[in-house]
Design a protein around this nucleic acid. Structure first.
Lengths: 243, 243
DNA sequence: AAGACAAAAAATGAATGCAAAATGAGTCTC
DNA sequence: GAGACTCATTTTGCATTCATTTTTTGTCTT
């Protein structure tokens, strides 16, 4: 049994992370594999090839593919196999808006339950992020920024919300990998100010206000991201067309 | 190699949702079957029995079960089969809050794109609902109420949001079937007033305000629903315990 | 008689097999 | 020479089969 698993493309990460069953393990690995952008957009992914790569039979793989399709990461064309779902500009706009709505909700709920310690932790993250901003450390800034938003979602004390948030985040993350969201200096400064407003509303536990501020903040992010991505795609398209 | 990209613009994914394939058909039927509450909470659902009922083999059924599990309708215990997911009081609170967040978002987005005709249609629904309210027609009221909220979600012009909304609505609907949400007269009147406020904000395209009003409206709904359900469950538990 | 152990029965998880549809190549026609 | 048609190959969808795990049942011991 164990010896039937050959050296596949991806190493067996952990015996049981949470899903002891094979299809669960496959699901986690495949999801990561797709989210990390290892398969080009719209590319056809033959089942056999994935089976060989993962060292399993088609049954659990197909089960995992069905789930990923339900999650919106891939799409299954009848009798034509699985493709990585292409995200149009409109899809991205929609996804960003939903994410904004979820975070806006998270902020509102967080105000009802967040502790002073949690707020203090977020404040520390905020100052850490400010340091990265001053140093023009985009990567560090981005990471801490992510942690702040995750902290807010965590403070909402709503596992259902967190799961949905993670799911949508995964759908966007795949794009983030391809197009690195280099941010304009000006927008960066605005973002910092917005973060201060967020922190302020959070301190006062002003749920409605925080909800609003968070939504606007993410809306601005959306605009910047979409613009950047459109430019990147335009360039890519031009290159392809020119070749 | 040259034309490996057939229709990269937009594959044929809309026309046939998933009814063509067997597993898609099974998925739709099973989802309805579970959502409508045909299987008691926490009940074990033998695969064989379902296969016999649906007249198929286990393979497509298991694929559908995996998807339903991912949607949160059922849970799959390793080596112990599928069970209809039991929703704790906390789960319901979380679900209601997420629904409130999504509708709140829908209202905000709707203000950006809704047409006068759509608003007029919602106003008509509102007055129709008011009639049901005056006639104490709970069922009619409930249905029209649902249509109003769906109209707002539709007006948001965000398919991703709509899909998420439908998914979460399905998870709650199963409970709605078991426990009929008889509403207290007083709360009913409050709900009508809230609806008027919603309509008012919508007319003025006041996004932030509508977002806030919708959230509060659904929060109040949540409280009423949870209380009612807790009472119903308490009664059921008592009956079971007494028998 | 009650509890524990063991074997049989059933159910689940995964692999394999088979039919139908799609893809691709080769040939034929115009 | 280009396009269309036909047939072989590949791939997908589903059913069936095989191997574990769980559950049940029956017996034995205390």
């Amino acid at each position: 049994m164990k010896s039937t698993i050959p050296e596949s493309g991806m190493p067996i990460t952990q015996p049981d992370r949470q899903e002891a069953s094979l299809h669960g393990e496959i699901l986690l690995r495949l999801r990561d594999y797709v989210v990390e952008g290892n398969i080009p957009e719209g590319a056809r992914v033959p089942e056999r090839q994935l089976c060989a790569m993962l060292g399993i039979s088609r049954t659990p793989l197909r089960e995992a593919l069905k789930v990923l399709a339900a999650e919106g990461l891939i799409e299954l064309l009848p009798n034509r196999g699985a493709r990585v779902r292409e995200l149009s500009e409109r899809d991205l706009e929609e996804l960003f808006d939903v994410m904004a709505g979820l975070e806006s909700l998270a902020g509102r709920l967080a105000c009802e339950a967040i502790t002073d310690e949690e707020i203090a932790a977020i404040e520390r993250l905020h100052y850490e992020m400010y340091g990265h901003y001053l140093n023009s450390d985009m990567h560090g800034y981005f990471q801490v920024n992510q942690r702040i938003h995750e902290s807010i979602v965590a403070a909402a004390r709503n596992e259902t919300l967190r799961a949905a948030y993670d799911s949508f985040a995964g759908r966007i993350r795949r794009v983030r990998y391809s197009a690195n969201f280099a941010r304009k200096r000006q927008r960066w400064g605005e973002a910092m100010r917005e973060h201060e407003a967020i922190l302020d509303a959070l301190r006062r536990r002003a749920g409605s206000e925080l909800s609003d501020t968070l939504f606007q903040h993410l809306r601005n992010k959306r605009t910047a991201a979409i613009e950047h991505l459109a430019a990147a795609r335009g360039a890519t398209t031009a290159t392809v067309a020119g070749s």
